[in-house]
Design a protein around this nucleic acid. Structure first.
Lengths: 348, 348
DNA sequence: CTGTTAGCGCCTTCAG
DNA sequence: CTGAAGGCGCTAACAG
């Protein structure tokens, strides 16, 4: 007759007992789809649940019904505003659907990505969403792809936000087009010579943006010499150092510096300023992403605006709502936004 | 003799069958603590698991052993760098211990906080970590407290990062002391009159910072008139608008503007600049938090530096490692960092 | 509608 | 060291 439990949460069975009904009835009253249970009983069950502070064991439910309402999200670095904004979108959309989101951050290390997927697979999430640039090296995605395929074979849905290199639904951020569009605008504003601060060569996002930008300049008759192409980390400090290297190479003729993301642009601006370069008088600067918390740097940064939150929403929509085949591509186009960091050039 | 499954992941039983051993043996080989199983069998099981792409069902494990290795994290807004930095610390520390982190964002709405805890309770996480300012209104924490108490009674561990208002372990960010220390430094630098841009009056973090700052100025003989105390949202736009309001009140005599967080300070600076106010020549500015992505705004922002990532680590350490009673307080002190936005004042 | 009875996938005594 | 059996908390047919 001992109703107490040394520890551990109260179970449905206890609730049923206290309410004086069967386990099944309690279950139906608490979760089972809509009104199919006597109002009186229902009330008694609810009351019992309340006094016992009952909370349904989601894990048990998952086992019983053979499925969860969880979504796993894998990002490269949650403290980076780019990823946290996307994560925000994912979480909002998920919550609207009553889904729980579990997040993992790979710290930008390739191996962790696969390991993380493996671990998350055990959760049997409805969907695994992977956001972050792919790497160029052929076959480097092999392991990850296998893991993901296994997950899909078991009924899971994979969604990626990156380059469509793997055979899964992917939110395809058109970096090349965005960078080209930005370059086009800049050229219209009078720019003829530009330098590019790019990320690690095997990081596709960095490469695509750099190439798209360079191609557009070349097409308009202003090819960018390799000398003006500097590589650095995809981070703030990477931008800082790359700017330093660029200056070392001499940036006398450079009218504009395009950093492949806003954070790098910010770092570059910090370096330039510290080196006595006036912005934007001596040289213009542009970035990519349109990160919200960088909106107030001075001069206001010209960039390619990406609907980060929306991308997050799309990711879960894409993963859940459709009957799309596993190879859907949802393109996302960025919009160039010219601000004070790249003033109109008036030539004599 | 059908080994296929229409869908759904392979189970331990299938692995066992393929390996030609019992369920128990397979279980032990795959998870059971250390070597207690014949190497040959173990190999066979591992091989079977591999060819089947087996992934242990965490939910089932949780039900069977009556516990999970999950940690739930509730933040006010994951896209805010303040929270995402703390989240980053939590996740790093969690991963080191093989824990899975599930995150929820309340969108800064009080009611969602309680709802979220209720939902997370069902996951039976080892710990629930709540990060975000408490509200002042007496009894407003009642519901949340009840929910949390119920969770604790069932064996869970609650950790808060906020004001120690509730009877749970809490990482106590000493806002008052931090703001006072900043004020002290500023006074040493020659500042005598300051204005404060604060957040909603019932948001304790905002209130504590404003009060700590004001108190320090008053103690040094430079009380801050209510006229120089402007309230706004705890966001970038809040800072922008508050700065506008402040200017409307006339900021002729104000030497320094203290915004209760960096984001607001950034917004304020944007407004001031747009209004033709020179920074820091016409007025100095200071913030609080030392947000990384704001490090490159101009002029470099004076602020109180908080070890955000570390706070995240502490939170999970505090929640997991100790035998502390449920009422531990871990104080965290911020360090004032004076930068270009608040130059030394030399008086005639 | 309600209660009874099987499982869900896995762990864990408990004999062998 | 191995296998059989019971149980974790809950849901889902199935009969009443």
């Amino acid at each position: 007759m001992n109703t107490e439990r040394a520890s551990g949460a109260p179970t449905l069975e206890e609730v049923a007992r206290v309410a004086g009904v069967s386990l099944a009835t309690a279950s139906r009253a608490l979760n089972g789809s809509s009104r199919k249970v006597n109002p009186e009983y229902r009330e008694r069950v609810l009351a019992a649940a309340r006094t016992l502070d009952y909370s349904p064991n989601l894990a048990a439910q998952a086992v019983a019904k053979g499925g969860t309402s969880t979504v796993a999200l894998v990002v490269a670095d949650i403290s980076d505003p780019y990823f946290s904004s996307i994560a925000s979108g994912v979480m909002r959309a998920a919550e609207e659907r009553g889904l729980i989101v579990t997040i993992g951050s790979t710290e930008r290390r390739r191996a962790r990505e696969t390991a993380m997927v493996r671990m998350f697979r055990g959760q049997r999430p409805r969907s695994i969403i992977l956001v972050g640039s792919r790497w160029a090296a052929l076959g480097s995605d092999r392991e990850l792809g296998d893991e993901l395929k296994a997950y899909e074979k078991a009924g899971g849905r994979v969604t990626m936000v990156s380059q469509p290199q793997l055979p899964f639904r992917t939110i395809d951020i058109r970096n090349r087009e965005g960078a080209a569009a930005l370059a086009g605008q800049l050229i219209k504003h009078g720019y003829r010579s530009a330098a590019i601060l790019t990320g690690p060569g095997d990081l596709n996002t960095a490469r695509e943006r750099a190439e798209g930008f360079a191609a557009a300049f070349a097409e308009h008759g202003h090819p960018i010499d390799d000398r003006w192409l500097v590589t650095g980390d995809f981070t703030r400090d990477g931008g800082f150092l790359a700017a330093a290297e660029l200056r070392r190479r001499g940036l006398g003729e450079v009218e504009l510096i395009f950093a492949v993301n806003d954070i790098m642009a910010g770092g570059a601006m910090a370096y330039l300023r510290s080196a006595g370069v006036r912005l934007p008088e001596d040289v213009a600067v542009a970035g990519f992403d349109d990160i919200y918390s960088l909106r107030d740097i001075t001069p206001a940064l010209t960039t390619v605006s990406l609907p980060l939150e929306l991308i997050g929403r799309r990711a879960i929509e894409c993963a859940l709502d459709d009957e799309q085949n596993g190879d859907t591509r949802v393109p996302i186009y960025g919009v160039p936004v010219l601000r004070e960091s790249s003033p109109l050039i008036v030539r004599a």
